[in-house]
Design a binder for these strands. Structure first.
Ligand code: FES
Ligand code: FES
Lengths: 144, 144
DNA sequence: TATTCACAGGATTTCGAAAACATATCTATT
DNA sequence: AATAGATATGTTTTCGAAATCCTGTGAATA
């Protein structure tokens, strides 16, 4: 459904939101350990999020990643767009070059509802809301 | 969501159901042209469907693929299981090693509903029903 | 101002899904 | 029985996502 990049991106953003702040920036090693993701690859993905102003970063000593108030309130869909583009929300469920109402695949009617649900899921969930689950102990970003 | 193999498999099965019969078997070239899929790769996938008794095949002159009455009534989920396994129906939405109720990811509650819908979609749609859309002109397996 | 820490960014490698190839096997037809 | 036409099967190649490596750049601190 989502690419690995996107999955890591969502997990990383939530972790940074839960653990970090303007005063307490989170380093890449810390992030990767807690979300169980490959370091260099994750660093690259965080670059993308930073360029898209979804997370903030600070170079140098005591540097790291953090989210400001505005960024905390962003919905997850922004992360999906930044990493995977809009394909998830408009592609055909069984691989037709394009999904259309005029030449729909046999699954189209049932699938477009699901696609809309996926969109709602990431559109209506903010990074902060997800982070709150972590803090409360109701959510996890890695298992074991 | 589904792998390329699975997408081609679903499209191929529906096409065979719509166009073929015990008397009129469908060849690989015919199939690939009408569902716009790579020939050799699709042949390999049809092997899998044949081994899993989802489609029937006949070698030799005038041979090809077809579906008997029982096979026509099978739900698409059997194709998904044969090609992709059960991961789609039980994996975590943001890539945790495993999805569990005891250590759920922050998206778990919202995602498991979507996952169930995907399952219903392929569980409640039979190959024959999908094929019927083609015959009626309400469904397509390739665009342009 | 020199040094060190941590992110930024380009270049490269790895790995598995996707695709192509080559050969074997089976069957209707002559 | 020989042949031609079709699927079956094992092997190899391609390609892009995923992951790594290496160097550059900015900021804090001593
Ligand atoms: S055409 Fe397949 S989902 Fe719309
Ligand atoms: S743990 Fe992520 S979907 Fe269940």
């Amino acid at each position: 459904m989502f690419s690995k990049s996107c999955e890591y991106a969502i997990r990383a953003a939530i972790y940074i939101s839960a653990e970090g702040s303007m005063e307490k920036k989170i380093g890449i090693d810390d992030i990767c350990e807690h979300i169980e993701a490959p370091k260099h690859f994750t660093a690259k993905i965080l670059q993308i999020l930073t360029r898209n102003k979804i997370v903030s970063s600070q170079k140098g000593v005591n540097g790291g990643f953090y989210l400001d108030k505005k960024q905390n309130n962003k919905p997850l869909i922004e992360i999906v767009y930044a990493t995977d583009g809009s394909d998830v929300f408009c592609g055909c469920g069984i691989g037709l070059k394009e999904c259309s109402e005029s030449e729909p695949c046999p699954l189209h009617e049932k699938f477009k509802g699901i696609r809309a649900n996926i969109r709602s899921m990431v559109e209506e969930s903010t990074i902060e809301e997800m982070a709150k689950k972590l803090t409360k102990g109701n959510g996890f970003l890695r298992v074991e």
